[in-house]
Design a protein around this nucleic acid. Structure first.
Length: 877
RNA sequence: GGGCGCUUAGCUCAGGGGGAGAGCACUACCUUGACGCGGAAGGGGUCAGAGGUUCAAAUCCUCUAGCGCCCACCA
């Protein structure tokens, strides 16, 4: 099988036929998924490969059930990431964004999007993803911009969006605010510096306090010292004044419950402009907020002699100067968590600035309820607790970004009368005073502010759109766990708010994260990544997809195993060759229903029925690993290894036997290809189109062929046939084992003796003799309830039936004796274990009766086997 | 500080109260007419450790150790 020769043309044919497009069929429940929009700056990585395979498997399967499906595709404008890329490009020409100006810069971003934005879409196509490419979305599309503005204005008018001067997370490199969850914390070894602050006037013989800090440079902005109100060491000092070293500013000592007396010295230096807790303390005590830092993390004018220094240089100098003044008490080693920008990994600064926020608590309440009452459910379920924990402790969301690329905040200020309003349409004239001195807010919105609208803005909202009514709420959202808060939770909140409380999706799949074999996160920058495009090159799109599905379990991680992709490529090849076999034996074929003529026929049809039930159930419950394994086992082990092998003699026999085998081969292959199609779309489609199907089974494409629902196959369930073929497999495997042990040629015919339990078994041997002949080289047989074991024969026990294989004089009896001894030991151990169990009164009294019966039967079987093996040993001795 | 997940064959992992499984790797065999990206056979595991519940524990509970992750106002 050569994937490269097949995949392109097949995908092209799907596109030509427009199977990807979504149609509205009134009265039929649709199935819809919105893709987590990859960044326009992005290219396909393993996370995308996994996540989009999952979605495509679900969508393809549902499409085959006949439901109208819509898999919305598109990209995210990715404010910071894209802006960084464009700034890097400008930097190569020696320019900054300020050199080119806002308008030209935004223009450059659009150009960048037009040049690179479709890269990842092309890669999705290479994977075979059946998205609706005819309706691609971008989070900066005009209609999407309108949706963003409407959301902002609605929330603004309701008071849910507000402006405030707060401590936010500032990235000095990106020069923008970030929300709390865009900060990545990392434990770093640093120091805890203990500083001595002199009191203005000694109190009771005390002339100073010692404070501890991890960021000494912030002391330039200290405006008070806080101690715990019950701390006996400091009680007397509360209300007195400290002279801030280096700055000479007089600041008070205050009492505040926030302070933990057991940490450091128990006295805290308070810098309200540079720490969120200090900000709170400062608010409570009416302290000044002295901002000593510029946007680029250099020290501001308020930092006196340190103004202009970089924050770390200032830190060094402050420590040196304090030390020189005898005010550095000690320096302890200290590990603490430091926040970094999630886009550029620069250490963030807590910084006081004017920003826009969303009041989240009112939005969170119904979104928590939607999960509690099961309208939204997570898979695996344990993620619901993570969701609750975050949502119940949610804090306001800082949504303004000091970037140029993004949705500009639709707030307008009148410089004539001071009016401030939010508006969907641009404002040129003040509605209050009629003045024309209007300016729009300079900031843009957090990218996630627009991403949260994805499940409904991509259905035409806020315009009335039949797609919204039909396809919303979407069926499933599949995503990585790292954007559970950034994206998923916010979609639930905004989705419900703007759609009359209707949830945006029923099920949330949190798929595993893909790690490399060392357990490191796959990352291009770290060089620990694997490129999905390379994988498709080696294993084909189907091989990559199936190999990924094999690795999806309920765990948090996948340590990526390329072996699974190798097996999957081989599997695609197996499917291809098995199908070739079927197709090259079609001479004389007439389409029609399957013919359960033999036990083997009834067996494979029964197995198919079981498989189809399992696959439907497995996909409904998102068990991709189990489902792919069952498909693999059925196709390879049951269909190829046994059924095709069993059919060979009948195909050769011609006549009705041949036709029955042909019918069943085509039928089972057809249904198996349908079941495999969602995971391996290309190879299955390529073969399926060549199958000579009965008219009722035909379709233009496997993509839209009918899903083999379990209910259509239950009629084939056949326990008797399954038992019978299990026994046949035991007999054949046993005889092959004997051949292998004694190095008997496959062409060496064997006369086999069956000791049967009655007529039914005699008949069974008679009817299966043909299969035994072709699969195990049995050339003759005797079946008798009174059969005696011939001298010098090997014995196989198949479901309790003894099968003797006379070995003439061809056998190394010493080797056989040694094997039998080992076998005897094994059986004796098992038997002893069972006998102990069966003589345990507690077991007999409390275990389920069927368990006891089963164990008794097993014990009897082992006892028989043991006697047999001992008899054989005696013979050989 | 709180929480989650993992620890099963050499490797990557399924399984989840009653006879230890898969893929890859390994051993020796098969130029059999779909397939060597194959066939057929075989070796290999006291299911991390300790304790408990139970007639019965790899599986449930507790603790311990190691690995990974998330959350938190760790001056």
């Amino acid at each position: 099988y050569d994937p490269k020769a097949v995949e392109g043309p097949i995908f092209e044919s799907w596109t030509q036929a427009d199977y990807f497009g979504a149609r509205i069929v009134e009265g039929v429940r649709p199935y819809s998924i919105v893709i987590p929009p990859p960044n326009v700056t992005g290219s396909l990585h393993m996370g995308h490969a996994l996540n989009n395979t999952i979605q495509d498997v679900l969508v393809r399967r549902q499409r085959m059930t006949g439901r109208p499906t819509r898999w919305v595709v598109g990209t995210d404008h990715a404010g910071i990431a894209t802006q960084n890329k464009v700034e890097q490009k400008l930097a190569k020409e020696g320019l900054s964004r300020y050199d080119v100006g806002r308008e030209a810069f935004i223009e450059a971003c659009w150009e960048w999007r037009h040049e690179h934005g479709s890269t990842i879409i092309g890669q999705l196509k290479a994977m075979g993803c059946s998205c609706d490419y005819s309706d691609e979305w971008f989070t900066m599309d005009p209609s999407y911009q309108k949706a963003v503005r409407k959301v902002f204005v609605d929330w603004f008018d309701k008071g849910l969006v507000y402006r405030g001067k707060r401590i936010i997370n500032w990235c000095p490199r990106c020069a923008t605010a970030l929300s709390d969850i865009e900060v990545e914390h990392e434990d770093l070894s640093s120091h805890l510096w203990h500083l001595r602050y002199p009191l203005k006037e000694p109190v009771g013989g005390v002339d100073h306090v010692v404070v501890a800090t991890t960021r000494p440079e912030t002391m330039l902005g200290d405006t008070c010292i806080a101690v715990h109100p019950d701390d006996e060491r400091y009680k007397q000092l509360v209300g007195s004044t400290v002279v801030l070293p280096l700055m000479g500013r007089e600041i008070p000592i205050v009492a505040d419950d926030y302070v933990d007396p057991t940490f450091g010295s128990g006295a805290v230096k308070v810098t309200p402009a540079h720490d969120p807790n200090d900000f709170e303390i400062g608010e409570r005590h009416g302290c000044a907020k002295v901002n000593i830092m510029n946007a680029d993390a250099t020290i501001a004018e308020a930092g006196g002699q340190y103004a202009g220094l970089d924050r770390y240089e200032a830190r060094k100098r402050v420590i040196e100067d304090l030390d020189a003044a005898g005010l550095l008490v000690k320096t302890d080693d200290h590990v603490h968590s430091v926040g970094h920008c999630y886009r550029c990994h620069t250490v963030i600064e807590p910084w006081l600035s004017d920003q826009w926020f969303v009041d989240m608590k009112p939005l969170a309440a119904p979104a928590i309820e939607a999960v509690r009452d099961g309208r939204v459910s997570f898979h695996p379920k344990r993620w619901e607790n993570v969701y609750y924990h975050w949502m119940e402790n949610i804090r306001d969301w800082c949504i303004s970004r000091q970037l140029w690329w993004g949705h500009r905040i639709p707030v307008f200020y009148c410089d004539d009368c001071g009016e401030m309003l939010a508006s969907i349409e641009d404002v040129t004239e003040c509605p209050k005073c009629g003045g024309g001195n209007i300016r729009q807010d300079e900031d843009v919105l957090d990218t996630w502010f627009s991403s949260q609208l994805w499940p409904f803005a991509t259905f035409g909202w806020p315009e009335a759109d039949p797609r919204l009514d039909y396809f919303y709420p979407t069926s499933v959202l599949s995503t990585a766990r790292d954007i559970l808060f950034l994206w998923v939770a916010r979609m639930v909140m905004s989705g419900m708010y703007f759609n009359d409380g209707e949830i945006p999706f029923n099920d949330v799949i949190i798929h595993p994260t893909v790690f490399n074999t060392e357990g490191k996160r796959m990352s291009k920058s770290l060089g620990t990544g694997v490129d999905p495009l390379d994988l498709m090159e080696h294993y084909g799109a189907d091989g990559m997809r199936f190999g990924l599905m094999l690795q999806v379990t309920g765990n948090q991680d996948i340590k990526f195993s390329e072996d699974k992709l190798l097996s999957s490529r081989n599997f695609a090849n197996k499917i291809w060759n098995a199908s070739r076999f079927v197709l090259m034996h079609m001479e004389g074929y007439e389409p029609g229903d399957p013919v359960p003529a033999t036990v083997a026929d009834r067996w494979i049809l029964s197995r198919l029925a079981a498989l189809s039930a399992r696959v439907s159930e497995g996909l409904d419950t998102y068990q991709f690993g189990d489902t792919s394994r069952e498909l693999y086992d059925f196709f390879w082990s049951e269909f190829c290894d046994w059924y095709i092998e069993l059919s060979k003699a009948r195909l050769a026999a011609g006549g009705e036997q041949r036709l029955a085998a042909q019918r069943n081969l085509v039928f089972v292959l057809d249904r198996a290809l349908r079941l495999l199609h969602p995971m391996m779309p290309f190879v299955t489609e390529a073969i399926w189109r060549k199958l000579p199907l009965a008219e009722a089974d035909q379709a233009e494409s496997l993509m839209i062929a009918e899903w083999p629902d379990a209910s259509g196959l239950v009629r084939f369930e056949d326990e008797g046939a399954e038992r019978s073929i299990s026994r046949l497999i035991e007999v054949v495997t046993g005889i092959r084992g004997v051949r292998a042990r004694y190095k008997l040629s496959p062409r060496q015919g064997l006369d086999v003796v069956f000791k049967t339990a009655g007529d039914a078994e005699n008949q069974w041997v008679q009817s299966e003799f043909g299969d035994m002949a072709s699969l195990a080289g049995v050339s003759g047989f005797t079946a008798d309830t009174a059969a005696a074991k011939p001298a010098h024969s090997a014995t196989v026990i198949a479901s309790g039936m003894e099968v003797y294989i006379p070995l003439e004089g061809l056998v190394d009896f010493e080797a056989e004796a040694s094997r039998l001894s080992k076998e005897r030991a094994r059986i004796a151990t098992e038997l002893a274990r069972l006998e102990k169990k069966l003589s345990n009164e507690g077991f007999l009294a409390k275990a389920a009766p069927e368990v006891i019966d089963k164990d008794r039967a097993k014990a009897a079987e082992f006892a028989d086997s043991l006697a047999l093996v001992e008899g054989q040993l005696a013979e050989l001795a």
